[in-house]
């Protein structure tokens, strides 16, 4: 484990070893876009976390006539039933952030284990995992979530499970490819030769060497999780009223968009900024990890 990867001059040069671990983070931090991403996403996350403690009203408290922009004592007016828009905005972020990060972490963990096992153990397991992957990938993520939730009903744990499950095959592909490159190297062969158990080779030799692509995947998956969860809430299949939630706020107030734009504009801006920030960080990580432009795919 060398930390000297931070100063590999030309990242595009094929000879440069891929940055990993702390060196990767340091290289990524060197890009302006990473700093911008951390600032933008950080500001939104901070709003989501601190918001509930500083909001002037309770999220379900009625403070004035509905859909007004000039109610005394409110910053952005009232929503469609007369609750304070700003208070609901401050309360509406932490569930989104929490659920998105949990789902992304679970999906990346599951995908990494599956991908590593498939790539290292090969054989029948590899076939099985990759074929099952292909089947899961045949469903657009959103439609899979809608299909299951329309039957079991919208529940938070179900959102986490569904999004994690739909992320896992996408991560597994990346983890498997990264594993295939590592497995060929001498240190894996020598570990095998001295009889290190296979699970320890996976955990101790392979995993540390594929952290780069996995970190990039994590960033990407967090970005998409936020988008998916916000979309589900917007479609009315996420958190249920009267909870304050950004996606749900957009759904509830979009019919009065022309009269009271704030109740939609604030949560939309927050969701957009959060995903933009996360994607900028991901892009920085990707550049540090592989040194080339990443073709982003939905």
């Amino acid at each position: 484990m060398t930390a000297a990867t931070a100063d590999t001059g030309a990242p595009a040069a094929p000879a440069a070893p891929p940055a990993r671990g702390r060196g990767l983070l340091r290289t990524a931090w060197g890009y302006g876009r990473t700093k911008a991403g951390v600032a933008i996403a950080g500001a939104v996350v901070l709003t989501a976390v601190i918001g509930p403690f500083v909001s002037p009203y309770a999220p379900t408290e009625l403070v004035g006539i509905p859909n007004a922009t000039d109610v005394d004592g409110t910053l952005f007016g009232t929503d469609q039933v007369g609750r304070d828009v700003f208070s609901r905005f401050l309360h509406g972020g932490y569930t989104l952030v929490l659920v998105a990060v949990t789902a992304a972490l679970a999906g990346v963990a599951a995908g990494a284990v599956l991908g590593m096992a498939a790539g290292y153990l090969r054989g029948r397991l590899d076939d099985l995992v990759m074929r099952a992957n292909d089947m899961l990938l045949a469903f657009p993520q959103l439609v899979l979530a809608l299909l299951v939730m329309s039957i079991l009903g919208p529940k938070v744990w179900l959102i986490v499970v569904l999004i994690a499950v739909s992320h896992a095959p996408r991560v597994a592909r990346v983890a498997r490819e990264a594993t295939l490159r590592v497995v060929e190297q001498d240190f894996v062969k020598s570990a095998e030769a001295i009889g290190v158990p296979r699970w320890r080779i996976m955990a101790g030799e392979i995993l540390p060497n594929i952290t780069g692509p996995l970190l990039v995947e994590l960033g990407l998956r967090i970005t998409y999780s936020v988008g998916l969860i916000a979309t589900l809430s917007f479609l009315g299949m996420g958190l249920q009223p009267p909870i304050a939630d950004w996606g749900l706020m957009i759904n509830e107030n979009r019919v009065v968009l022309t009269v009271q734009p704030w109740s939609v504009a604030l949560p939309v801006a927050a969701v957009a900024l959060l995903t933009i920030g996360a994607n900028l960080i991901t892009d920085g990580l990707a550049r540090a990890s592989i040194g080339i432009d990443r073709g982003v795919q939905k």
Binding site: V226, G227, I276, N279
Partner: peptide, 9 residues
Amino acid sequence: LVLAAIPEF
């Protein structure tokens, strides 16, 4: 980069 991140709705 910005457009790829924002959910389409």
